[in-house]
Design a protein around this nucleic acid. Structure first.
Length: 565
RNA sequence: UGGGGAUUGGUGUAAUGGUAGCACGGCUGACUCUGGAUCAGUUAGUAUAGGUUCAAGUCCUAUAUCCCCAGCCA
Protein backbone atom coordinates (compact mmCIF):
# COMPACT_ATOMS: atom_id res chain seq x y z
CA UNK A 1 0.00 0.00 0.00
CA UNK A 2 1.44 3.30 -1.02
CA UNK A 3 -1.62 5.37 -0.36
CA UNK A 4 -0.46 8.69 0.93
CA UNK A 5 -2.79 9.00 3.88
CA UNK A 6 -3.35 12.52 5.04
CA UNK A 7 -1.40 12.47 8.29
CA UNK A 8 -2.43 15.10 10.77
CA UNK A 9 0.30 17.69 11.00
CA UNK A 10 2.72 17.10 13.83
CA UNK A 11 2.81 19.83 16.44
CA UNK A 12 6.16 21.41 17.19
CA UNK A 13 6.86 19.13 20.16
CA UNK A 14 6.21 15.98 18.15
CA UNK A 15 8.32 17.36 15.32
CA UNK A 16 11.26 17.74 17.67
CA UNK A 17 10.74 14.26 19.10
CA UNK A 18 10.36 12.76 15.63
CA UNK A 19 13.62 14.36 14.51
CA UNK A 20 15.41 13.15 17.63
CA UNK A 21 14.18 9.62 17.09
CA UNK A 22 15.22 9.76 13.45
CA UNK A 23 18.67 11.01 14.43
CA UNK A 24 18.89 8.19 16.96
CA UNK A 25 19.36 10.64 19.81
CA UNK A 26 19.10 8.85 23.18
CA UNK A 27 19.48 5.62 21.15
CA UNK A 28 16.09 6.35 19.65
CA UNK A 29 14.33 6.05 23.00
CA UNK A 30 11.57 8.36 24.14
CA UNK A 31 10.81 8.79 27.83
CA UNK A 32 8.45 11.50 29.04
CA UNK A 33 6.83 12.20 32.36
CA UNK A 34 3.79 13.83 33.88
CA UNK A 35 4.86 15.48 37.15
CA UNK A 36 1.89 16.69 39.25
CA UNK A 37 2.25 18.15 42.69
CA UNK A 38 -0.14 16.31 45.03
CA UNK A 39 -1.60 19.45 46.53
CA UNK A 40 -4.90 19.66 44.67
CA UNK A 41 -7.05 18.10 42.02
CA UNK A 42 -6.31 17.79 38.33
CA UNK A 43 -8.21 20.03 35.93
CA UNK A 44 -8.72 20.06 32.20
CA UNK A 45 -5.55 22.10 31.78
CA UNK A 46 -3.63 19.18 33.24
CA UNK A 47 -5.48 16.94 30.79
CA UNK A 48 -3.70 18.72 27.97
CA UNK A 49 -0.33 17.98 29.55
CA UNK A 50 -1.33 14.38 30.27
CA UNK A 51 -2.47 13.82 26.69
CA UNK A 52 0.79 15.29 25.43
CA UNK A 53 3.14 13.48 27.82
CA UNK A 54 1.46 10.09 27.54
CA UNK A 55 0.50 10.61 23.90
CA UNK A 56 4.03 11.38 22.72
CA UNK A 57 5.38 8.36 24.58
CA UNK A 58 2.74 6.11 23.06
CA UNK A 59 3.20 7.40 19.54
CA UNK A 60 6.95 6.99 19.57
CA UNK A 61 7.03 3.63 21.29
CA UNK A 62 8.36 5.11 24.51
CA UNK A 63 7.24 5.26 28.11
CA UNK A 64 5.70 7.97 30.22
CA UNK A 65 6.41 8.16 33.91
CA UNK A 66 3.99 9.40 36.51
CA UNK A 67 6.07 11.29 39.01
CA UNK A 68 4.69 13.13 41.97
CA UNK A 69 6.61 16.30 42.74
CA UNK A 70 6.19 15.92 46.46
CA UNK A 71 8.83 18.32 47.71
CA UNK A 72 6.63 20.44 49.95
CA UNK A 73 5.13 18.42 52.83
CA UNK A 74 3.28 21.44 54.17
CA UNK A 75 0.91 21.38 51.24
CA UNK A 76 0.79 17.84 49.98
CA UNK A 77 -1.43 14.96 51.00
CA UNK A 78 -1.95 11.31 50.20
CA UNK A 79 -5.58 11.92 49.26
CA UNK A 80 -4.43 14.06 46.36
CA UNK A 81 -2.05 11.35 45.20
CA UNK A 82 -4.92 8.88 45.12
CA UNK A 83 -7.28 11.30 43.38
CA UNK A 84 -4.70 12.22 40.76
CA UNK A 85 -4.05 8.59 39.92
CA UNK A 86 -7.78 7.92 39.60
CA UNK A 87 -8.24 10.92 37.33
CA UNK A 88 -5.38 9.96 35.01
CA UNK A 89 -6.73 6.44 34.68
CA UNK A 90 -10.21 7.77 34.02
CA UNK A 91 -8.80 9.97 31.28
CA UNK A 92 -7.49 6.80 29.71
CA UNK A 93 -3.78 6.63 30.47
CA UNK A 94 -1.70 4.05 32.27
CA UNK A 95 1.82 4.32 33.63
CA UNK A 96 2.25 0.70 34.70
CA UNK A 97 5.32 0.25 36.88
CA UNK A 98 6.53 3.76 36.19
CA UNK A 99 5.16 5.45 39.29
CA UNK A 100 7.76 7.64 40.96
CA UNK A 101 8.08 10.27 43.63
CA UNK A 102 10.54 13.10 43.87
CA UNK A 103 10.78 12.06 47.52
CA UNK A 104 12.36 8.78 46.34
CA UNK A 105 15.33 10.90 45.33
CA UNK A 106 15.74 12.91 48.52
CA UNK A 107 18.97 11.12 49.46
CA UNK A 108 20.47 11.45 46.00
CA UNK A 109 19.49 15.10 45.86
CA UNK A 110 21.07 15.64 49.24
CA UNK A 111 24.28 13.95 48.13
CA UNK A 112 24.39 16.10 45.04
CA UNK A 113 23.92 19.19 47.17
CA UNK A 114 26.87 18.08 49.27
CA UNK A 115 28.90 17.67 46.09
CA UNK A 116 27.98 21.18 45.00
CA UNK A 117 29.00 22.58 48.38
CA UNK A 118 32.28 20.67 48.23
CA UNK A 119 32.94 22.25 44.84
CA UNK A 120 32.29 25.67 46.30
CA UNK A 121 29.13 26.04 44.22
CA UNK A 122 26.61 26.23 47.03
CA UNK A 123 26.47 27.81 50.46
CA UNK A 124 24.37 28.00 53.57
CA UNK A 125 22.77 31.38 54.05
CA UNK A 126 21.24 32.68 57.27
CA UNK A 127 19.61 35.71 55.71
CA UNK A 128 15.89 35.86 56.40
CA UNK A 129 13.42 35.34 53.60
CA UNK A 130 12.83 39.07 53.67
CA UNK A 131 16.54 39.85 53.39
CA UNK A 132 17.01 37.37 50.58
CA UNK A 133 14.28 39.11 48.66
CA UNK A 134 15.94 42.49 49.21
CA UNK A 135 19.29 41.13 48.10
CA UNK A 136 17.80 39.64 44.96
CA UNK A 137 17.50 43.04 43.33
CA UNK A 138 14.76 43.87 40.87
CA UNK A 139 13.95 43.20 37.25
CA UNK A 140 16.17 46.07 36.22
CA UNK A 141 18.76 46.19 38.98
CA UNK A 142 21.28 43.48 39.83
CA UNK A 143 21.16 41.77 43.20
CA UNK A 144 23.67 41.98 46.03
CA UNK A 145 25.73 39.14 47.37
CA UNK A 146 24.93 37.67 50.74
CA UNK A 147 27.57 38.10 53.45
CA UNK A 148 27.60 34.29 53.77
CA UNK A 149 28.37 33.78 50.12
CA UNK A 150 32.07 33.21 50.50
CA UNK A 151 32.00 30.93 53.46
CA UNK A 152 34.35 27.97 53.11
CA UNK A 153 33.06 24.65 51.78
CA UNK A 154 34.12 23.03 55.03
CA UNK A 155 31.98 25.36 57.10
CA UNK A 156 29.06 25.05 54.63
CA UNK A 157 29.26 21.28 54.80
CA UNK A 158 29.05 21.40 58.55
CA UNK A 159 26.15 23.84 58.57
CA UNK A 160 24.22 21.88 55.94
CA UNK A 161 24.76 18.68 57.89
CA UNK A 162 23.39 20.36 61.00
CA UNK A 163 20.41 21.72 59.04
CA UNK A 164 19.66 18.16 58.04
CA UNK A 165 20.06 16.92 61.61
CA UNK A 166 17.39 19.34 62.72
CA UNK A 167 19.52 21.68 64.81
CA UNK A 168 17.96 24.80 63.36
CA UNK A 169 14.40 26.08 63.35
CA UNK A 170 12.29 26.48 60.23
CA UNK A 171 13.28 29.46 58.14
CA UNK A 172 16.53 30.13 59.91
CA UNK A 173 18.82 28.95 57.13
CA UNK A 174 18.72 27.85 53.51
CA UNK A 175 21.14 26.28 51.11
CA UNK A 176 21.69 28.39 48.00
CA UNK A 177 23.47 27.77 44.75
CA UNK A 178 26.35 30.13 44.06
CA UNK A 179 25.74 31.34 40.54
CA UNK A 180 25.42 35.02 39.63
CA UNK A 181 23.67 37.73 41.63
CA UNK A 182 23.88 40.05 38.64
CA UNK A 183 22.23 37.73 36.13
CA UNK A 184 19.41 39.34 34.16
CA UNK A 185 17.61 36.04 34.71
CA UNK A 186 16.43 36.20 38.30
CA UNK A 187 16.38 32.42 38.54
CA UNK A 188 20.18 32.47 38.38
CA UNK A 189 20.63 34.89 41.29
CA UNK A 190 21.75 32.27 43.79
CA UNK A 191 18.48 30.33 43.98
CA UNK A 192 17.47 28.55 47.15
CA UNK A 193 18.05 24.80 46.96
CA UNK A 194 16.93 23.66 50.41
CA UNK A 195 14.77 25.06 53.15
CA UNK A 196 14.21 23.77 56.66
CA UNK A 197 10.73 22.38 57.21
CA UNK A 198 9.99 20.40 60.36
CA UNK A 199 6.98 18.74 58.78
CA UNK A 200 5.66 15.24 58.33
CA UNK A 201 5.91 14.13 54.74
CA UNK A 202 3.16 11.85 53.38
CA UNK A 203 5.78 9.36 52.21
CA UNK A 204 9.03 9.97 54.06
CA UNK A 205 7.41 10.82 57.37
CA UNK A 206 9.89 12.38 59.80
CA UNK A 207 13.00 11.26 57.93
CA UNK A 208 13.84 14.73 56.68
CA UNK A 209 13.61 18.25 57.93
CA UNK A 210 15.32 19.83 54.95
CA UNK A 211 13.35 19.69 51.73
CA UNK A 212 14.55 20.46 48.21
CA UNK A 213 12.99 23.30 46.28
CA UNK A 214 11.19 22.40 43.07
CA UNK A 215 13.94 23.93 40.94
CA UNK A 216 16.58 21.77 42.57
CA UNK A 217 14.48 18.61 42.51
CA UNK A 218 12.79 18.73 39.16
CA UNK A 219 15.56 18.64 36.60
CA UNK A 220 17.56 16.09 38.52
CA UNK A 221 14.50 13.88 38.99
CA UNK A 222 14.09 13.95 35.22
CA UNK A 223 17.75 13.14 34.87
CA UNK A 224 17.65 10.21 37.29
CA UNK A 225 14.70 8.71 35.43
CA UNK A 226 16.40 9.08 32.09
CA UNK A 227 13.71 11.38 30.77
CA UNK A 228 14.54 12.29 27.18
CA UNK A 229 11.92 14.95 26.58
CA UNK A 230 10.73 16.96 29.53
CA UNK A 231 7.59 18.79 28.47
CA UNK A 232 6.38 21.66 30.60
CA UNK A 233 4.53 24.90 30.40
CA UNK A 234 5.80 28.27 29.20
CA UNK A 235 6.53 29.83 32.57
CA UNK A 236 9.44 27.44 33.06
CA UNK A 237 11.20 28.72 30.01
CA UNK A 238 13.54 30.92 31.97
CA UNK A 239 14.16 28.21 34.56
CA UNK A 240 15.73 26.10 31.82
CA UNK A 241 19.15 27.80 32.07
CA UNK A 242 19.14 26.95 35.77
CA UNK A 243 18.25 23.30 35.17
CA UNK A 244 20.95 23.17 32.52
CA UNK A 245 23.45 24.63 34.97
CA UNK A 246 22.61 21.98 37.59
CA UNK A 247 23.01 18.97 35.32
CA UNK A 248 26.21 20.40 33.88
CA UNK A 249 27.74 20.96 37.31
CA UNK A 250 26.70 17.47 38.35
CA UNK A 251 27.76 15.91 35.07
CA UNK A 252 24.59 13.85 34.75
CA UNK A 253 22.12 12.95 31.99
CA UNK A 254 20.64 16.04 30.39
CA UNK A 255 16.94 15.78 29.49
CA UNK A 256 15.66 18.17 26.87
CA UNK A 257 13.05 20.54 28.21
CA UNK A 258 10.43 21.80 25.76
CA UNK A 259 7.87 24.36 26.82
CA UNK A 260 4.33 24.68 25.51
CA UNK A 261 1.33 26.89 26.29
CA UNK A 262 -1.25 25.95 28.87
CA UNK A 263 -4.85 25.26 27.99
CA UNK A 264 -7.31 28.00 28.88
CA UNK A 265 -11.05 27.85 28.38
CA UNK A 266 -13.63 30.59 28.17
CA UNK A 267 -16.08 31.07 31.04
CA UNK A 268 -13.95 29.32 33.66
CA UNK A 269 -10.78 29.97 35.59
CA UNK A 270 -8.07 27.37 35.57
CA UNK A 271 -5.57 28.22 38.27
CA UNK A 272 -5.44 25.88 41.24
CA UNK A 273 -5.36 28.83 43.59
CA UNK A 274 -8.54 30.34 42.20
CA UNK A 275 -10.34 27.03 42.03
CA UNK A 276 -9.46 26.58 45.68
CA UNK A 277 -10.92 29.99 46.45
CA UNK A 278 -14.17 29.07 44.72
CA UNK A 279 -14.37 25.95 46.87
CA UNK A 280 -13.42 27.64 50.11
CA UNK A 281 -15.71 30.61 49.63
CA UNK A 282 -18.57 28.26 48.89
CA UNK A 283 -19.21 29.53 45.39
CA UNK A 284 -19.24 25.93 44.30
CA UNK A 285 -20.02 22.77 46.14
CA UNK A 286 -16.55 21.28 46.27
CA UNK A 287 -13.78 20.25 43.91
CA UNK A 288 -16.10 17.89 42.10
CA UNK A 289 -18.90 20.39 41.68
CA UNK A 290 -20.12 19.78 38.13
CA UNK A 291 -19.41 23.41 37.24
CA UNK A 292 -15.71 23.05 38.02
CA UNK A 293 -13.16 22.44 35.24
CA UNK A 294 -11.56 19.77 37.42
CA UNK A 295 -11.52 16.29 35.98
CA UNK A 296 -13.61 15.03 38.89
CA UNK A 297 -16.08 17.87 38.31
CA UNK A 298 -16.31 17.21 34.59
CA UNK A 299 -16.73 13.51 35.27
CA UNK A 300 -19.58 14.15 37.67
CA UNK A 301 -21.13 16.51 35.15
CA UNK A 302 -21.14 13.67 32.63
CA UNK A 303 -18.23 14.60 30.38
CA UNK A 304 -16.48 11.66 28.76
CA UNK A 305 -12.72 11.07 28.67
CA UNK A 306 -12.99 10.81 24.89
CA UNK A 307 -14.47 14.29 24.64
CA UNK A 308 -11.67 15.72 26.72
CA UNK A 309 -9.00 13.88 24.77
CA UNK A 310 -10.53 15.01 21.52
CA UNK A 311 -10.51 18.58 22.72
CA UNK A 312 -6.81 18.29 23.53
CA UNK A 313 -6.12 16.82 20.12
CA UNK A 314 -8.12 19.59 18.48
CA UNK A 315 -6.47 22.52 20.22
CA UNK A 316 -3.02 21.16 19.47
CA UNK A 317 0.24 22.21 21.06
CA UNK A 318 1.89 25.56 20.46
CA UNK A 319 3.90 28.19 22.26
CA UNK A 320 1.36 30.97 22.24
CA UNK A 321 -1.05 31.75 24.99
CA UNK A 322 -4.60 31.28 23.90
CA UNK A 323 -8.05 30.89 25.30
CA UNK A 324 -10.09 28.14 23.73
CA UNK A 325 -13.78 28.74 23.19
CA UNK A 326 -15.75 26.49 25.53
CA UNK A 327 -17.98 25.81 22.52
CA UNK A 328 -15.18 23.68 21.12
CA UNK A 329 -15.25 21.44 24.18
CA UNK A 330 -19.02 21.29 23.98
CA UNK A 331 -18.67 20.19 20.39
CA UNK A 332 -16.30 17.32 21.14
CA UNK A 333 -18.58 16.38 24.01
CA UNK A 334 -21.80 16.34 21.98
CA UNK A 335 -20.03 14.55 19.19
CA UNK A 336 -19.09 11.71 21.54
CA UNK A 337 -22.31 11.66 23.55
CA UNK A 338 -24.43 11.65 20.39
CA UNK A 339 -22.86 8.41 19.28
CA UNK A 340 -23.05 6.58 22.57
CA UNK A 341 -25.95 7.86 24.68
CA UNK A 342 -29.18 5.92 24.98
CA UNK A 343 -32.18 8.14 24.23
CA UNK A 344 -34.87 8.50 26.80
CA UNK A 345 -37.84 10.78 27.42
CA UNK A 346 -37.89 13.10 30.39
CA UNK A 347 -40.01 16.16 31.09
CA UNK A 348 -38.24 18.87 33.01
CA UNK A 349 -41.12 21.29 33.56
CA UNK A 350 -44.26 19.14 33.43
CA UNK A 351 -47.57 20.29 31.99
CA UNK A 352 -50.44 17.87 32.47
CA UNK A 353 -52.20 16.69 29.34
CA UNK A 354 -55.44 14.69 29.31
CA UNK A 355 -56.29 12.79 26.13
CA UNK A 356 -60.06 13.01 26.36
CA UNK A 357 -60.91 10.34 23.81
CA UNK A 358 -58.39 7.83 25.16
CA UNK A 359 -59.92 5.03 27.28
CA UNK A 360 -59.65 5.68 31.00
CA UNK A 361 -57.97 2.45 32.04
CA UNK A 362 -55.98 1.65 28.95
CA UNK A 363 -52.19 1.44 28.90
CA UNK A 364 -50.21 0.70 25.75
CA UNK A 365 -46.55 -0.22 25.57
CA UNK A 366 -45.06 1.58 22.60
CA UNK A 367 -41.75 0.75 21.02
CA UNK A 368 -39.00 3.36 21.06
CA UNK A 369 -35.54 3.39 19.50
CA UNK A 370 -32.69 3.55 21.99
CA UNK A 371 -30.23 5.29 19.71
CA UNK A 372 -30.87 6.25 16.10
CA UNK A 373 -27.10 6.60 15.67
CA UNK A 374 -26.48 3.01 16.70
CA UNK A 375 -28.94 0.32 15.74
CA UNK A 376 -27.19 -2.25 17.92
CA UNK A 377 -28.49 -0.45 21.00
CA UNK A 378 -31.93 -1.83 20.20
CA UNK A 379 -35.34 -0.70 21.31
CA UNK A 380 -37.34 -0.41 24.49
CA UNK A 381 -40.94 0.12 25.29
CA UNK A 382 -42.61 3.11 26.93
CA UNK A 383 -46.08 3.15 28.50
CA UNK A 384 -48.78 5.44 27.10
CA UNK A 385 -52.00 6.31 28.88
CA UNK A 386 -54.75 8.89 29.13
CA UNK A 387 -52.92 11.38 31.31
CA UNK A 388 -49.47 12.54 30.27
CA UNK A 389 -46.91 15.20 30.94
CA UNK A 390 -45.35 17.30 28.25
CA UNK A 391 -42.83 20.11 28.51
CA UNK A 392 -44.32 23.50 29.43
CA UNK A 393 -42.13 25.06 26.77
CA UNK A 394 -43.83 22.90 24.19
CA UNK A 395 -47.14 24.68 24.56
CA UNK A 396 -48.04 28.28 23.79
CA UNK A 397 -51.48 29.66 24.11
CA UNK A 398 -50.55 32.30 21.60
CA UNK A 399 -47.84 30.74 19.42
CA UNK A 400 -45.32 32.97 17.67
CA UNK A 401 -44.32 32.48 14.05
CA UNK A 402 -42.35 29.30 13.35
CA UNK A 403 -43.50 27.74 16.63
CA UNK A 404 -44.03 24.14 15.55
CA UNK A 405 -45.21 22.85 18.87
CA UNK A 406 -48.56 22.56 20.59
CA UNK A 407 -51.13 25.39 20.71
CA UNK A 408 -54.89 25.57 20.86
CA UNK A 409 -56.29 23.81 17.80
CA UNK A 410 -52.86 22.60 16.64
CA UNK A 411 -51.86 19.02 15.98
CA UNK A 412 -48.48 17.56 16.89
CA UNK A 413 -46.95 14.15 17.18
CA UNK A 414 -46.08 12.59 20.50
CA UNK A 415 -42.86 10.77 19.84
CA UNK A 416 -43.37 7.05 19.08
CA UNK A 417 -47.06 7.45 20.09
CA UNK A 418 -49.92 9.35 18.46
CA UNK A 419 -50.86 12.62 16.83
CA UNK A 420 -52.76 14.76 19.29
CA UNK A 421 -54.71 17.96 18.89
CA UNK A 422 -55.18 20.52 21.61
CA UNK A 423 -58.86 21.22 22.10
CA UNK A 424 -58.98 23.15 25.33
CA UNK A 425 -56.96 24.35 28.25
CA UNK A 426 -57.46 24.74 31.96
CA UNK A 427 -56.13 27.75 33.82
CA UNK A 428 -55.54 28.62 37.40
CA UNK A 429 -58.11 31.36 37.94
CA UNK A 430 -55.93 33.36 40.29
CA UNK A 431 -52.67 33.32 38.39
CA UNK A 432 -53.81 32.81 34.85
CA UNK A 433 -51.28 30.02 34.51
CA UNK A 434 -52.17 27.14 32.23
CA UNK A 435 -52.40 24.07 34.44
CA UNK A 436 -53.72 21.44 32.08
CA UNK A 437 -54.31 20.75 28.42
CA UNK A 438 -57.25 18.85 27.03
CA UNK A 439 -56.46 17.03 23.83
CA UNK A 440 -57.78 14.38 21.49
CA UNK A 441 -55.72 11.73 19.78
CA UNK A 442 -56.05 10.06 16.42
CA UNK A 443 -56.03 6.29 17.01
CA UNK A 444 -54.96 5.73 13.42
CA UNK A 445 -51.60 7.37 14.06
CA UNK A 446 -50.35 4.77 16.53
CA UNK A 447 -46.57 4.65 16.53
CA UNK A 448 -46.38 8.14 15.10
CA UNK A 449 -47.36 7.79 11.47
CA UNK A 450 -50.59 8.83 9.83
CA UNK A 451 -52.08 6.45 7.28
CA UNK A 452 -53.50 9.36 5.30
CA UNK A 453 -50.03 10.78 4.90
CA UNK A 454 -50.77 14.06 6.64
CA UNK A 455 -47.74 15.76 8.05
CA UNK A 456 -47.25 17.37 11.35
CA UNK A 457 -44.49 19.86 11.97
CA UNK A 458 -43.65 19.17 15.57
CA UNK A 459 -42.78 16.07 17.56
CA UNK A 460 -42.89 16.31 21.35
CA UNK A 461 -41.47 14.15 24.08
CA UNK A 462 -43.84 13.05 26.80
CA UNK A 463 -44.21 10.81 29.83
CA UNK A 464 -47.21 8.88 31.05
CA UNK A 465 -48.25 10.47 34.36
CA UNK A 466 -49.19 7.24 36.08
CA UNK A 467 -45.90 5.60 35.20
CA UNK A 468 -43.55 8.54 35.56
CA UNK A 469 -40.53 8.53 37.81
CA UNK A 470 -39.88 11.72 39.72
CA UNK A 471 -36.39 13.14 39.82
CA UNK A 472 -34.41 16.13 40.86
CA UNK A 473 -32.61 17.59 37.91
CA UNK A 474 -29.72 20.00 38.27
CA UNK A 475 -29.32 22.34 35.36
CA UNK A 476 -25.79 23.62 35.02
CA UNK A 477 -24.67 26.57 33.01
CA UNK A 478 -21.36 28.39 32.58
CA UNK A 479 -19.65 29.36 35.84
CA UNK A 480 -18.89 32.91 34.75
CA UNK A 481 -20.81 35.47 32.78
CA UNK A 482 -17.81 36.71 30.84
CA UNK A 483 -15.43 34.69 28.64
CA UNK A 484 -12.27 35.69 30.47
CA UNK A 485 -13.02 36.77 34.04
CA UNK A 486 -9.36 37.43 34.77
CA UNK A 487 -8.90 39.80 31.86
CA UNK A 488 -11.80 42.11 32.48
CA UNK A 489 -10.75 45.70 32.00
CA UNK A 490 -12.94 46.98 34.81
CA UNK A 491 -10.38 45.85 37.37
CA UNK A 492 -13.06 43.96 39.28
CA UNK A 493 -12.25 40.74 41.05
CA UNK A 494 -12.99 37.68 38.93
CA UNK A 495 -15.53 36.50 41.49
CA UNK A 496 -17.76 39.40 40.60
CA UNK A 497 -18.37 37.71 37.27
CA UNK A 498 -19.66 34.49 38.77
CA UNK A 499 -22.86 33.50 37.00
CA UNK A 500 -25.70 33.59 39.54
CA UNK A 501 -27.63 31.23 37.27
CA UNK A 502 -24.93 28.62 36.90
CA UNK A 503 -27.10 26.16 38.80
CA UNK A 504 -30.85 25.75 38.66
CA UNK A 505 -32.45 22.88 40.54
CA UNK A 506 -35.71 21.42 39.28
CA UNK A 507 -37.28 19.42 42.07
CA UNK A 508 -39.97 17.43 40.34
CA UNK A 509 -39.13 16.31 36.84
CA UNK A 510 -40.92 13.39 35.23
CA UNK A 511 -39.05 10.57 33.58
CA UNK A 512 -40.02 7.49 31.64
CA UNK A 513 -39.93 4.37 33.84
CA UNK A 514 -36.98 2.77 32.06
CA UNK A 515 -34.74 5.11 34.08
CA UNK A 516 -35.64 3.08 37.15
CA UNK A 517 -32.48 0.98 36.90
CA UNK A 518 -30.10 3.82 36.20
CA UNK A 519 -26.91 3.93 38.23
CA UNK A 520 -24.76 6.90 39.21
CA UNK A 521 -22.54 7.81 36.29
CA UNK A 522 -24.95 6.51 33.65
CA UNK A 523 -25.43 8.93 30.79
CA UNK A 524 -28.52 9.55 28.70
CA UNK A 525 -29.84 11.85 26.10
CA UNK A 526 -33.19 13.26 27.09
CA UNK A 527 -34.64 13.66 23.64
CA UNK A 528 -34.93 17.22 22.42
CA UNK A 529 -33.34 18.58 25.61
CA UNK A 530 -29.80 17.52 26.25
CA UNK A 531 -27.41 15.03 27.73
CA UNK A 532 -27.77 14.03 31.35
CA UNK A 533 -25.86 11.98 33.87
CA UNK A 534 -27.03 10.26 37.04
CA UNK A 535 -25.45 11.98 40.05
CA UNK A 536 -23.96 10.04 42.97
CA UNK A 537 -26.32 11.97 45.27
CA UNK A 538 -29.06 9.68 43.96
CA UNK A 539 -30.60 7.25 46.41
CA UNK A 540 -33.15 4.49 46.15
CA UNK A 541 -35.81 7.02 46.97
CA UNK A 542 -34.62 9.96 44.94
CA UNK A 543 -33.00 10.15 41.53
CA UNK A 544 -30.66 13.11 41.11
CA UNK A 545 -29.61 13.95 37.60
CA UNK A 546 -27.12 16.45 36.21
CA UNK A 547 -27.50 18.16 32.90
CA UNK A 548 -24.19 17.67 31.15
CA UNK A 549 -24.90 19.90 28.16
CA UNK A 550 -27.94 20.95 26.19
CA UNK A 551 -28.64 19.78 22.70
CA UNK A 552 -27.99 22.44 20.10
CA UNK A 553 -31.23 24.36 19.97
CA UNK A 554 -32.03 26.17 16.77
CA UNK A 555 -35.47 27.15 18.02
CA UNK A 556 -33.85 28.98 20.94
CA UNK A 557 -31.78 30.90 18.41
CA UNK A 558 -34.80 31.85 16.35
CA UNK A 559 -36.59 33.01 19.46
CA UNK A 560 -33.62 34.94 20.73
CA UNK A 561 -33.13 36.64 17.40
CA UNK A 562 -36.77 37.70 17.21
CA UNK A 563 -36.78 38.98 20.78
CA UNK A 564 -33.82 41.21 19.99
CA UNK A 565 -35.65 42.88 17.14
C1' U B 1 13.27 50.66 32.00
C1' G B 2 16.46 43.95 32.61
C1' G B 3 15.70 38.96 30.86
C1' G B 4 12.71 35.14 28.49
C1' G B 5 8.64 34.06 25.02
C1' A B 6 4.69 35.03 21.48
C1' U B 7 1.68 37.45 17.31
C1' U B 8 -2.49 33.69 10.74
C1' G B 9 -10.66 34.82 10.35
C1' G B 10 -14.84 35.75 16.32
C1' U B 11 -12.03 31.09 18.60
C1' G B 12 -8.34 26.99 18.18
C1' U B 13 -4.87 25.70 14.52
C1' A B 14 -2.15 24.17 9.36
C1' A B 15 0.99 25.87 5.56
C1' U B 16 8.95 24.81 7.11
C1' G B 17 10.25 30.58 0.03
C1' G B 18 5.63 28.45 -4.61
C1' U B 19 -2.74 28.18 -4.87
C1' A B 20 -3.49 30.89 2.88
C1' G B 21 -6.22 25.17 4.30
C1' C B 22 -8.92 22.59 8.46
C1' A B 23 -12.07 22.54 12.82
C1' C B 24 -15.36 25.23 16.10
C1' G B 25 -18.73 29.31 16.04
C1' G B 26 -22.02 32.43 12.96
C1' C B 27 -25.34 32.73 8.77
C1' U B 28 -28.40 30.16 4.42
C1' G B 29 -30.74 26.04 2.74
C1' A B 30 -31.95 20.56 2.33
C1' C B 31 -33.52 16.45 5.11
C1' U B 32 -35.73 14.68 9.54
C1' C B 33 -40.95 10.79 14.14
C1' U B 34 -35.36 14.64 18.47
C1' G B 35 -36.12 22.43 15.96
C1' G B 36 -30.86 16.67 17.74
C1' A B 37 -27.84 14.19 14.17
C1' U B 38 -26.63 14.39 8.98
C1' C B 39 -25.76 16.96 4.25
C1' A B 40 -24.83 21.30 1.09
C1' G B 41 -23.48 26.29 0.77
C1' U B 42 -21.62 30.73 2.99
C1' U B 43 -18.96 34.14 6.24
C1' A B 44 -14.17 35.79 7.84
C1' G B 45 -7.43 35.99 8.56
C1' U B 46 -1.18 36.45 7.81
C1' A B 47 -0.11 42.94 13.94
C1' U B 48 2.32 47.54 11.41
C1' A B 49 6.11 49.83 8.17
C1' G B 50 10.04 49.06 5.10
C1' G B 51 13.42 45.65 2.50
C1' U B 52 15.45 40.91 -0.17
C1' U B 53 13.24 37.70 -4.09
C1' C B 54 10.45 35.87 -10.33
C1' A B 55 7.71 34.65 -5.79
C1' A B 56 7.27 36.22 1.46
C1' G B 57 2.57 34.11 6.56
C1' U B 58 7.53 32.02 5.94
C1' C B 59 13.95 35.45 5.12
C1' C B 60 16.06 40.60 6.82
C1' U B 61 15.38 45.53 9.52
C1' A B 62 12.58 48.45 12.52
C1' U B 63 7.99 49.27 15.26
C1' A B 64 3.60 47.85 18.00
C1' U B 65 0.95 44.70 21.20
C1' C B 66 0.40 40.58 24.57
C1' C B 67 2.30 36.79 28.17
C1' C B 68 5.99 35.12 31.98
C1' C B 69 9.99 36.15 35.86
C1' A B 70 11.76 39.85 41.82
C1' G B 71 8.22 32.40 46.91
C1' C B 72 12.33 29.58 51.95
C1' C B 73 5.30 27.58 46.04
C1' A B 74 5.28 24.19 42.01
Amino acid sequence: MTTAEAQPALDFVRQIVAEDVKANKHAGRVVTRFPPEPNGYLHIGHAKAICLDFGVAQEFGGTCHLRFDDTNPTKEEQKYIDAIKADIRWLGFEWGEHEYYASDYFQQLYDWAVALITDGKAYVDELTAEQIREHRGTLTEPGRESPSRNRSPKENLDLFERMKRGEFPDGSRVLRAKIDMASPNLNMRDPVLYRILHATHPRTGEAWCVYPMYDWAHGQSDSIEGITHSLCTLEFEDHRPLYDWFVEQLGIHHPQQIEFARLNLTYVVMSKRKLLELVEDGHVDGWDDPRMPTLCGLRRRGYTPEAIRNLCATVGVTKHNSITDAALLEHTLRDDLNKRSPRVMGVLRPLRVVIENYPEDQVEELEAINNPEDESMGTRTVPFSRVLYIERDDFREDPPRKFFRLAPGKEVRLRYAYFITCTDLVKDESTGEVTELRCTYDPATRGGNSPDGRKVKGTLHWVSAAHALSAEVRLYDRLFTVPDPLAEKSGKDYREFLNPESLEVLADCKLEPSLGNAQPGDRFQFERIGYFCIDPDSSDRQLVINRTVTLRDSWAKIEQASSKK
